[in-house]
Design a protein around this nucleic acid. Structure first.
Lengths: 328, 328
DNA sequence: GACAATTTTGCAATCGATTCCAAAAAGTGC
DNA sequence: GCACTTTTTGGAATCGATTGCAAAATTGTC
């Protein structure tokens, strides 16, 4: 059912029907009534594709996420979708995976769809390859990065201040008397580098000397379990651990329990992200809340400002806060 | 950069450029080479919107989910997106919320976008209102419901057999000697009704007489905690509980622990969905795995079959299995 | 070099809307 | 009833592609 079909049955031209559909003035009340009847009769609603073509605005937003199953990305994607749906946009979502090739590919696809804006959630998009892909395929489309940033004219960033957040975690541990601290890291993303930086800085602040203890683990419960055991064997004096993500903290906590340590008295530990893992592990894990949902919501608003061509700043910092639970 | 711009610079017509872009025969090798050079130079890629308009196929799929933050929906949405991305489709996703009005609205929006197919994830879409909305706005668009079903010519369903799954849970409990069983329910969705049915049927099978004990709770950890306490006070003989979802089982487990019950010896319990809650609670919860990711993957394949007009059955049943852990 | 066969190319219509401009219809005043 | 204004309507171009058909260019054969 197209606008022409309606026009034909109403005995008018498509222009007139279009005016009624878009509620524009200059249509005779009787004609309008007649057309409205037909619109309802056939449940007509205009083809947004065709509309987008002529208007050069398709009200489409692209969301890029490495893996939506990752709890904190889920929250972010949800916030973005909700905010844009409210404003009459549709969101096209892609799970890009971690390969940079895939990311480039999806950036191209989104540009082909002529999306009006893109939100990239997660620091994994803060890479040279993504930068090149943006320059190549969407140099003019507003891009907002949640927890990431690239220095390009059409890119804006919304970031949690994880560096000072991790410093706060260290301060918390130090205040409770834990001074032999270690950091367990899952991978060297830009975001994680900042965390380690915050860790080291605060150690210095607290006057804890010596090289900072950083252990590497895979992003799995089991790996964190193993690494923590090894850590405690190699450095038995350790009494405080910061894990780069909650999942690791969960695995590490299990290891500490199995080794017979009293938590938080003998060894205290924290996660980062304040995710479901932190809340549902036993004991409940103290975690750094980087407020990804809020961050994503802000990102959406940011993007809307850009779409409506309001001038805005280059990036925004949001302070993260600590959700203290049973492990500290 | 449109196809005409390329054509102009190459000194040929748009038709010729189109032929090159789509790799169609009948273009002189030299012309082709020249055009390909320009395509690369300008990073030209055809506007999918315009393409969709003329081809009457936009390679767009709609995904409707009540709330993607709901862990088992996340997995489903992921599976669907991945499968369609692989096939060159884009997915438009909406979190519909639980209101039926919103669902109707999003169904209309998707129809306006002329999506080629729709996947609805979750039994919440199995309602009269959704049925009406489909008839009204997308009577011709293939719709696949994951864990739901509506009797309409364009709708197909992929369902987990939760009824017999819950029966299996009851059987498991009964085999371990638990015969005073209760069911804690979060809400009366079609899916949950089937669970209760399976619960009651198996009680009868096992020769456990009396009306089945069914308690109602909100879908929160706290509510499950309270309801479980009340349940154990009102029926202290209870030695086995089936919770309609894992989150409830998690809250209930905490209540049982606080009341001093030995799990699983004195009281055993199970969740449903085999979600992250089941895996990360302490003790780890035995849960019914309704295999939503697999279900969603099957749904995608099902939809592809429909899109390619292969004939397929009306609905498919998938048997669920039990992931046994520490609470039974 | 003429003519047929074949290859290469472009014109124009199309998809389903929107919108400017001009034409038609209706309304107003004398 | 005529001239003029205002309201209502329709025609045609447009957005950015695709595609069937006809025209043009090239190639081959004698």
């Amino acid at each position: 059912m197209t606008i022409y079909d309606i026009a034909k049955e109403a005995g008018v031209s498509a222009s007139t029907v279009s005016r009624v559909v878009n509620d524009k003035p200059g249509v005779h009340p009787l004609t309008k009534e007649k057309i409205e009847g037909l619109l309802k009769k056939y449940n007509y609603s205009p083809d947004e594709t065709a509309r987008g073509l002529i208007k050069q605005k398709n009200r489409l937003i692209g969301i890029l996420v490495a893996d939506i199953r990752n709890v904190h990305y889920t929250d972010g994607a949800y916030a973005v979708e909700k905010e844009f749906a409210r404003r009459g946009y549709c969101c096209i979502i892609f799970n890009t995976g971690s390969e940079s090739e895939e990311k480039t590919e999806y950036i191209q696809i989104l540009s082909q769809r002529r999306v009006e804006g893109v939100v990239m959630i997660g620091s994994t998009f803060q890479t040279k390859e993504v930068e090149e892909a943006i320059v190549r395929f969407m140099p003019k489309i507003p891009v907002i990065m949640v927890n990431g940033y690239l220095k390009l004219p059409n890119v804006r960033g919304v970031l949690a201040d994880e560096r000072s957040g991790v410093s706060a975690l260290v301060r918390l541990l130090a205040e409770k008397g834990h001074r032999h601290l270690a950091f367990v890291n899952n991978c060297y993303t830009p975001s994680n580098r900042l965390k380690i930086q915050g860790f080291e800085e605060e150690l210095a602040h607290q006057g804890i000397e010596g090289p900072a203890l950083v252990y590497d683990a895979q992003t799995t419960f089991e790996s964190a379990y193993e690494v923590t055991k090894r850590l405690m064997q190699e450095h038995p004096e350790t009494d405080g651990i910061v894990y780069s993500v909650d999942l690791l903290a969960s695995g590490g906590g299990r290891a500490l329990a199995d080794m017979g340590y009293l938590v938080p008295d003998q060894v205290a530990y924290t996660g980062i992200d304040n995710s479901i893992y932190a809340e549902f592990s036993t004991p409940k894990i103290t975690s750094l809340d980087n407020k990804l949902p809020e961050l994503s919501l802000m990102a959406s608003r940011f993007l809307v400002d850009l779409l409506e061509e309001r001038s805005v700043t280059e990036k925004m910092m949001v302070f993260s806060s600590i959700a203290e639970r049973e492990t500290t």
